[in-house]
Simulated scan of single mutants.
Amino acid sequence: MNKSGTLPSKPHFPILDGLRGVAALTVVIFHILEAHATSSLDLMINHGYLAVDFFFLLSGFVIGYAYDDRWGKMTMGGFFKRRLIRLQPMVVMGSVIGAIFFYFQDSPIWPKIHEVPVWYLLVIMVIGATMLPVTISMDVRGWNEMHPLNGPAWSLFFEYIGNFLYAAGIRKLSKAALAVLVAVCGIWLACYAITSERGEMIGGWTLSVQQLKIGFIRLLFPFFAGLLLFRTVKLVQIKNAFLWCSLILLTVLGMPRIGGAENMWANGIYESITIILVFPLIVFLGASGVLEGKAATGICKFLGDISYPIYISHYPLIYTYTGWVSKHKGITLTEAAPYAILTFVSAVVIAWVCLKYYDEPVRKWLQQKLMPVSKTPAPVGVPS
């Protein structure tokens, strides 16, 4: 701590920021293409949903880097303030955007959407802005989402739980104890993925016992494996790390379904290997990488800046696009391509506008009001 009482800033891992952006953009494309799938078996960018598990692992690594050595100078209250300042403004904006889009949406896949009174829609919006989940009985869309105006907010709900568990006690574990915890969680994850009915890690967004179980499985291993990775590995300098890590990440997320409908367990093995082995390797290589040139630095900065805003704000557009596709039964992806591209571009533009004209100014204001002497950057988890 310096003489003014502030905690000194730490440099970011620019390649990890860039990879977070690559994963977030992949999620947007995955969700657009999901509207044209009949099941998880024929999804394009078939394993795009595993980007959430990558976000959790990335978050654990960065949380450890940012805060592990600061607990003698920082209280739990200070930690949670930093995390709220970093994450909550866009949670609020995502809920507001979701409510606006919901009001104008119309599709046969949501037959009762216009029966929702405005006052109730506003109630759901306010609850969503707090990050609290709603019960199935309160769902206004019919998809059993704990955040029905902005579905992907479920992962931020678990991100907050991961942050709480870290601050409340996991941070105090020795490397050996943390390794045991990670191993147990890894076994739990693999057993679930391989033995589950569909051999996949999809789920976590419904406030039910089974879905909460999936959410915790998806959170616990990657989040604390990322923390363990930070505490144990020795970084080395690797050239072209952003390129190679991006290619590996896009390959594993885009891999076609393994095993088909006959051998669901095979896909579970694939997803287990991806989360337990490949994702930590990508984070290690990315953290070790060295950026060369202004272009690469600028790309990683842009992708990192936009990663969380686009992840938490894009899904209201996906609802609209999915509803439009459902109205045009039989439409091919080629025929829908102009609308798909418009949806993607709109998601990027909305995210950038929110970042520059809302998120950054609001976070700066909150920093000045709530933590006027602190200059510690609070890293993004699940774009999080």
Score class of each variant (00 low, 15 high):
residue 134 V to P: 05
residue 78 G to C: 03
residue 123 V to D: 10
residue 167 A to V: 08
residue 2 N to F: 00
residue 376 T to E: 15
residue 295 A to I: 15
residue 168 A to D: 06
residue 313 S to W: 00
residue 326 S to E: 15
residue 14 P to Y: 13
residue 317 L to R: 06
residue 164 F to V: 15
residue 332 T to D: 07
residue 274 T to R: 02
residue 92 V to C: 08
residue 133 P to K: 14
residue 304 G to A: 09
residue 206 T to L: 04
residue 69 D to S: 14
residue 97 I to R: 04
residue 318 I to T: 03
residue 287 A to T: 15
residue 219 L to E: 00
residue 204 G to C: 07
residue 316 P to F: 06
residue 371 M to K: 10
residue 134 V to T: 13
residue 60 G to V: 13
residue 74 M to A: 08
residue 159 E to A: 05
residue 139 D to F: 12
residue 255 M to K: 08
residue 233 V to L: 06
residue 294 K to Q: 11
residue 249 L to P: 06
residue 207 L to T: 06
residue 119 W to Q: 11
residue 243 L to P: 02
residue 152 P to E: 08
residue 37 A to N: 00
residue 300 C to K: 15
residue 154 W to M: 03
residue 297 T to A: 11
residue 362 V to W: 01
residue 337 A to P: 07
residue 184 V to S: 12
residue 75 T to E: 09
residue 228 L to R: 01
residue 131 M to I: 15
residue 142 G to F: 07
residue 136 I to K: 10
residue 53 D to M: 11
residue 143 W to E: 15
residue 206 T to A: 14
residue 336 A to H: 06
residue 327 K to E: 13
residue 39 S to V: 03
residue 9 S to C: 02
residue 124 I to N: 11
residue 46 N to V: 11
residue 23 A to K: 01
residue 188 W to M: 13
residue 118 V to S: 03
residue 211 Q to H: 12
residue 45 I to C: 02
residue 247 L to H: 07
residue 35 A to L: 04
residue 142 G to N: 12
residue 188 W to T: 08
residue 8 P to D: 15
residue 318 I to P: 01
residue 99 A to D: 10
residue 103 Y to I: 04
residue 36 H to T: 10
residue 124 I to E: 04
residue 220 L to A: 11
residue 147 H to T: 12
residue 334 T to R: 14
residue 237 Q to A: 06
residue 120 Y to W: 11
residue 30 F to Y: 14
residue 36 H to N: 14
residue 71 W to A: 05
residue 134 V to S: 14
residue 63 I to C: 02
residue 265 W to Y: 10
residue 36 H to Y: 05
residue 364 K to R: 13
residue 381 G to F: 00
residue 80 F to I: 09
residue 209 V to N: 10
residue 373 V to Q: 12
residue 24 A to H: 01
residue 39 S to H: 07
residue 184 V to T: 15
residue 251 T to M: 05
residue 342 L to T: 14
residue 265 W to G: 09
residue 25 L to Y: 04
residue 27 V to E: 03
residue 159 E to C: 07
residue 142 G to D: 13
residue 330 G to C: 10
residue 105 Q to M: 12
residue 98 G to C: 01
residue 235 L to E: 12
residue 105 Q to V: 05
residue 48 G to C: 03
residue 7 L to G: 05
residue 299 I to P: 00
residue 372 P to Q: 13
residue 242 F to L: 08
residue 19 L to N: 04
residue 245 C to G: 15
residue 149 L to D: 03
residue 109 I to D: 11
residue 201 M to T: 09
residue 312 I to K: 08
residue 51 A to N: 05
residue 365 W to D: 00
residue 38 T to W: 00
residue 93 M to G: 04
residue 105 Q to H: 09
residue 122 L to R: 07
residue 345 V to Y: 04
residue 339 Y to N: 08
residue 100 I to R: 10
residue 196 S to G: 03
residue 267 N to C: 05
residue 292 E to W: 01
residue 18 G to H: 07
residue 30 F to R: 06
residue 91 V to Y: 01
residue 329 K to I: 11
